[in-house]
């Protein structure tokens, strides 16, 4: 590796199961899961902000649990069911309840942080289907929005809970 010219890096063939689809890709062990999703699989819905676990933009669901995709290696994610924001739509392709709520409540401005919020809230509402405003704040406390649109994001959490109750069968994919 230190020899000039020998820049080729060892790769391994791995399988990632994302939004119900199995993908096979060649990656070096150091490939972050966030980069594998975006660059190797072309799933650019997952956004990459700080790349050290602070901002929450890259949050995806790992076996249904919100997890930072920048704090996992792709090679270590093979045994899990991964769900990204692309898997948050309803089965017919229309907006899922959390996405719809963000649209209804003006819960996004520039939209960069939104995928991480959507995945976090999707899982949060599975655990707590009727959060109080305070619980809604707690649910999203690990995600940063630099447009500082938090008030409307909190409203979106409550609206998403309403939408999920109104249409409990039309859950997003990947459930």
């Amino acid at each position: 590796m230190t020899t000039p010219g020998s820049t080729a890096e060892q790769t391994e063939t791995i399988r990632l199961r994302v939004n119900g689809v199995t993908h096979e890709v060649d990656v070096p062990p150091r490939r972050l899961l966030s980069d594998a999703l975006r660059h190797d699989l072309g799933l650019t819905g997952t956004h990459v902000g700080c790349e050290h676990g602070v901002c929450g933009a890259c949050t995806i669901l790992v076996d249904g649990q919100p997890t930072r995709a920048c704090l996992m290696f792709a090679i270590a994610a093979q045994e899990y069911e991964l769900t990204t924001v692309e898997g948050m739509t309803r089965p017919d392709g229309s907006l899922g309840p959390v996405q719809q709520a963000f649209k209804d409540c003006h819960g996004l401005q520039c939209g960069f942080c939104t995928p991480g919020f959507i995945t976090t809230i999707e899982a949060g509402l599975e655990e707590n289907p009727d959060p109080t405003p305070e619980e809604a704040r707690d649910m999203i406390s690990g995600n940063l929005c630099r447009c500082t649109g938090y008030q409307n994001i909190v409203k979106s959490v409550r609206r998403a809970a309403e939408l999920k109750r109104e249409n409990p069968t039309g859950e997003g994919a990947g459930q």
Partner: peptide, 9 residues
């Protein structure tokens, strides 16, 4: 300990 998302992993 950190945020819930970090505690999951």
């Amino acid at each position: 300990v950190a945020h819930a998302t970090i505690r999951n992993r």
